[in-house]
Design a protein around this nucleic acid. Structure first.
Lengths: 110, 110
DNA sequence: CATATCTATCGTAATATTGCAATATTAAAA
DNA sequence: TTTTAATATTGCAATATTACGATAGATATG
């Protein structure tokens, strides 16, 4: 136990869960919001922005990159990160789809 | 360590992170999708739908209820769960807001 | 080359999550 | 009241996550 039983679910369910799990930490939310705020992609002053040690930020960036929410390109000694809009749109589409269904059949009993 | 340092972040960041974290597990995604599919709210045949033990499902339901994504009303010996559209709309609004900003300034360097 | 800078990785401690068996709780039904 | 059915809670084992210090790797600059 302790490990998620991914076999029980569809690939889609597993995928969206992984994406949302990656966003399910305030540090990673803060990173995303910062990346959006500074417009042009930003490298390691995320460490200055968020009160966490550099290895911790690096770890969070890695997680976001692993699921495809952000991407980074090397720029000299620094690395330029930014949001991958493709994956982001997938997340948005998922929520929109569910919202449509919710509106469609709004026969709540609770 | 091992505990998230919530003090570093805004209330909003912590809140949205908690909501997305709650959705960041395939079982809970499956529960949400099932609740939507069966339209009228459903009780404990979620256990039949998803291959997990009853206490495990109960635990996942509790987590979803804790953050307000679902609500349940007692109906005799069964409990009727359904999605709380208020919180759901908050999540959607969050993503929409970010998407707007993404479109606004789409000067990606990666 | 030596040094400084930026980022990643490793190792590890503290804590959280996942999942289940056993058991408790609650309310309908017999 | 006894029984049955539906959920919740408890306790626990296995695993995952979070965070950081130490260190390594890569690249620019003197």
């Amino acid at each position: 136990m302790g490990a998620t039983k991914t076999d029980n679910y569809t690939d889609e369910q597993n995928k969206i869960a992984l994406l949302l799990k990656a966003l399910g930490h305030p540090a990673r939310i803060a990173i995303i919001e910062y990346l959006i705020k500074v417009n042009s992609c930003i490298c390691g002053d995320i460490v200055n922005e968020i009160k966490l040690a550099q290895p911790t930020i690096s770890q969070h960036l890695k997680e976001l990159k692993n699921v495809g929410i952000i991407k980074g390109s090397i720029e000299g000694t620094a690395i330029c990160y930014c949001i991958d809009e493709t994956v982001w749109n997938q997340i948005q589409a998922y929520f929109e789809n569910i919202n449509l269904k919710l509106i469609e059949k709004s026969t709540n009993c609770c």
